[in-house]
């Protein structure tokens, strides 16, 4: 039985959009040297806020805007903890996920059972937000590699002591990066509630935020890599479902493990190349996950 590759690709575009947004956001956060494990919490916040706004105003695009703001707003809790109170990033991120899931579930009660307005299809009958996600990939790449702000952000992430010595504001840079990450995660979450399901239900992001974290690693911290990762992770799911639909028996559990193993292999390969050839590649940002406190 033949499966039309184009149809799989079209499915893939929609399926990978939430994780693409979240992962692009987290990419910028990590390039600034911050590891935010609260992606799931920010996504669910965006899913609720976006749905609430889309439902109340009847305008799905306004929903995405509100979702971005809500995602950025809740990310500021994490930012305050890690950048101002200098708390551990891993623990703070986990706490943000827990808090976000609970808060969204609590505030979402009035929106249960109602339906979001349908979205108008974009060019080529592909959702506007899918297009936006694809456009964000080169934009993020351009920002990181071709702008002065991007350079500063990378410097902060690579070695915050040195960046500080050069007079860059570490805290402000990281706050901005975290807010951007929150906004992107918010949009990704809202894509699930507004474009995919059209309803709000508790826990509807169902672990997408965790996949986004894996994608950033897979990407080797580059924007094109994030797109490839989102397509790989989305693609494996789409492909196994598509094969099932065509009546082919697939070992679902083993197949779904594959992208994570691929991520580990990619990570190891890149680390090894850096270690043995001593070539300055991209790789994990040097200051990833560590807090910075200026003594002066």
């Amino acid at each position: 039985m033949m499966i039309d590759p184009l149809s799989v690709f079209l499915l893939l575009l929609g399926a990978s959009t939430p994780i693409l947004f979240a992962a692009l956001g987290e990419l910028v956060v990590e390039r600034a040297g911050v590891l935010n494990l609260g992606v799931e919490g920010m996504m669910i916040t965006g899913a609720l806020a976006g749905f609430g706004a889309a439902y109340s105003t009847g305008n799905p695009f306004l929903g995405f805007l509100v979702a971005a703001c809500a995602g950025a707003a809740i990310s500021m809790l994490f930012a305050a903890l890690t950048q101002v109170f200098l708390a551990n990033q891993v623990a703070s991120g986990l706490a943000l996920t827990l808090f976000g899931l609970g808060l969204a579930a609590m505030l979402g009660k009035p929106f249960e059972g109602v339906r979001a307005p349908s979205m108008p299809a974009g060019p080529l009958r592909i959702n506007w937000i899918v297009w936006l996600g694809l456009v964000m990939v080169p934009l993020v790449w351009w920002f990181l590699n071709r702008t002065r702000s991007g350079l500063i952000l990378r410097a902060v992430g690579e070695n915050h002591e040195a960046a500080h010595a050069l007079g860059y504001n570490i805290r402000l840079t990281r706050l901005a990066a975290i807010a951007f990450g929150g906004a992107m995660a918010g949009v990704g979450g809202a894509f699930i509630s507004i474009a995919t399901v059209l309803q709000w239900t508790e826990g509807m992001t169902a672990g997408a935020g965790w996949i986004a974290l894996a994608i950033v690693v897979f990407s080797n911290w580059t924007a094109p890599g994030v797109l490839a990762g989102a397509w790989l992770f989305g693609g494996v799911t789409v492909l196994q479902l598509r094969l099932q639909a065509a009546g082919v028996a697939v070992p679902v559990q083993l197949l779904s493990m594959a992208p994570y193993l691929a991520t580990i292999i990619v990570l190891v390969a890149i680390s090894a190349r850096q270690k043995f050839s001593r070539r300055a590649g991209t790789g994990a940002p040097g200051s990833l996950g560590t807090n910075f406190h200026a003594l002066r």
Binding site: L35, V90, Q253, M257, Y260, L261, I264, L267, V268, A272
Partner: peptide
């Protein structure tokens, strides 16, 4: 992987959580 290749243990250990979760599902069904 960290000792041999310098791979970040933060990220590898996190990725292995996902793998373990899927192994658990596979075991429970198979």
């Amino acid at each position: 992987l960290r000792n041999w290749f310098g791979a970040s243990e933060i990220l590898v250990s996190l990725m292995l959580v996902y793998v373990a979760q899927r192994i658990a599902a596979w075991m429970a069904f198979g």
